[in-house]
């Protein structure tokens, strides 16, 4: 059993070596739905599901929120309590703090665990770039954008990206399980005498 845990830890290390580092290094100033200025690492120390959207989106963005909620619901309670959710607008012109607050309330998103944020246009491009999200403004004021949900670990490194919409992606849940497991494993290894 111990060996297995060790192997799991090793695996986690290997994966980390492959990732490009923490996306929290993007120096963007976010304003959340309460108007509080934040940085990208608003949820540092937690696993985070992050995605980008725009408030007036008729189709995929409501679905994106549904997807995040479904994922949250499908996660075991111990993981759910750690999980945080971050939605960043690609439409800073129309998605004002007031609009974001209204959206959060209408969708009943718990503001202690869900952040709806806006930032400046240049930062939108950089955040989209680190998340691999493509978007383009349309002549009618709407946006084309790819719908990708990214799982960040406690340090802001990308652990998994899913384009499954409308339901919890089992692979994403597995990844979430994996990045919350080692913490428990470490506790167990560190405190053998407790048992």
């Amino acid at each position: 059993m111990k060996r297995l845990l060790f192997a799991l830890l090793l695996l986690a290390t290997v994966v980390r070596a492959d990732t490009a580092g923490s996306i929290y290094q993007v120096a963007a100033a976010l304003a959340d739905q309460s108007g509080v200025l934040r940085r990208m690492d608003v949820y540092q120390g937690h696993p985070v599901l992050v995605t980008m959207f725009y408030g007036s989106c008729p189709m995929a963005c409501p679905l994106l929120i549904d997807t995040l909620r479904a994922t949250e619901r499908a996660a075991p309670a111990s993981e759910r309590s750690q999980l945080r959710l971050l939605l960043i607008s690609i439409d800073p012109e129309r998605d004002t703090v007031a609009n974001l607050k209204a959206l959060g309330e209408s969708r009943k998103l718990d503001p202690t665990r869900w952040t709806l944020a806006r930032t400046d246009a240049a930062s939108v491009r950089k955040i989209a770039a680190v998340l691999g999200i493509q978007y383009r403004k349309l002549p009618d004021g709407g946006y084309n954008h790819s719908s990708i949900v990214t799982l960040l670990d406690a340090n802001g490194e990308i652990q998994y990206q899913s384009s499954v919409l409308g339901k919890a992606d089992p692979e994403l849940l597995t990844a979430l399980d994996r990045i919350t497991q080692p913490a428990r494993a470490q506790r167990q290894v560190a405190e053998p005498s407790v048992r």
Partner: peptide, 15 residues
């Protein structure tokens, strides 16, 4: 490495 695969596959979301 396995974990990177879905990430790559996610570019298929653009298809």
């Amino acid at each position: 490495m396995n974990r990177l695969l879905p990430l790559l596959a996610s570019s298929a979301a653009l298809l």
